[in-house]
Design a protein around this nucleic acid. Structure first.
Lengths: 160, 160
DNA sequence: CCCTATTAAGTTGTGCGCAATTGAATGGTG
DNA sequence: CACCATTCAATTGCGCACAACTTAATAGGG
């Protein structure tokens, strides 16, 4: 029980904080590492895979909608979509009715990849080592935290 | 109840997978957004803050040890530590007994920042909107997943 | 003792994430 | 119609993550 006079009880929170942010950071990168291996055959990165998932589900979307699904802006999506287009997986064209918007659609190759990616989720779930119920719990907690954090940001920014 | 004949039961897993990786990705970035706001006054990025936490706890470490604590390699740490040094927060010097190793230590300014950072964890915990017990649960789940994922990677890589 | 393998940092190249800005198109208001 | 604010995509710049490689120093085996 050493006493650190210049560090009051905030010190405990610093340690707790360290644990939480370490854990989240580590988990995020661990997922990334597994996805990297699983997606290697497909030639996709993890963010590219997320975009493909959105397109497989919705078929055809403007860049804006993809960004809303994934919380990504054009600064991230524009070059990513260019690479997907260069890989022959998606097609981009200006929307005729609104020339500001760019519609992203799957090519035949992009659609066909959906079947090849079919094994990815199962292998990922196995790799987590957790039963589906606990993963569901994890997901609920993560979503709660995300919503709370997003709501908190404006207030924090206002405080300075 | 639409039936998609060309997509067998893997399709459900694709959706579940989408939810889990979306949630984790979103949570990770939501945390990053809050940290970015909280650390703005300190002039630190989130990864830089993590390094400072390690140094505040351990006082003085070679780059290798910092990397072990944070799961980061020299490719990430070398430029990051250069920026911390340029900011006057850390000092780097070659170890006399092993000239391959670089010892990273805090400057007076770097140590002093610890007090200024004292408010960060409390504000973050509040921002999450979750009671401490649920955050602890979240952390345990994340750590379990991380360990399982790390153990799974070699096997996955072997399969190809 | 020499030669080789290993280890630690650093460097390079690619891709992601985000803030800030630009440019073109659109919509609304006087 | 003219003007202005808004919207969408793209671009720029910076920092992080990671793989692959380089360089320098150390440790170990013949």
């Amino acid at each position: 029980m050493t006493v650190l006079p210049d560090l009051p009880d905030d010190a405990d929170l610093l340690l707790l904080d360290r644990q939480i942010c370490f854990s989240l950071n580590a988990a995020s990168r661990a997922f990334g590492g597994v996805y990297r291996v699983l997606l290697k055959d497909l030639g996709l990165t993890y963010p590219q895979y997320l975009v493909m998932l959105v397109l497989w589900e919705h078929g055809e979307l403007p860049v804006k909608r993809i960004g809303e699904h994934l919380r990504l802006d054009s600064g991230t999506l524009s070059p990513l979509l260019k690479r997907l287009e260069a890989a022959g997986l998606v097609h981009r064209k200006r929307s005729p009715e609104d020339e500001r918007s760019v519609t992203v659609s799957l090519t035949g190759e992009g659609s066909a990849m959906r079947e090849r990616a079919g094994q990815v989720p199962r292998r990922l779930l196995v790799a987590t080592g957790l039963p589906v119920e606990q993963l569901a719990t994890l997901r609920v907690l993560l979503d709660q935290v995300t919503e709370a954090l997003d709501n908190a940001v404006p207030g924090l920014a206002a405080e300075g």
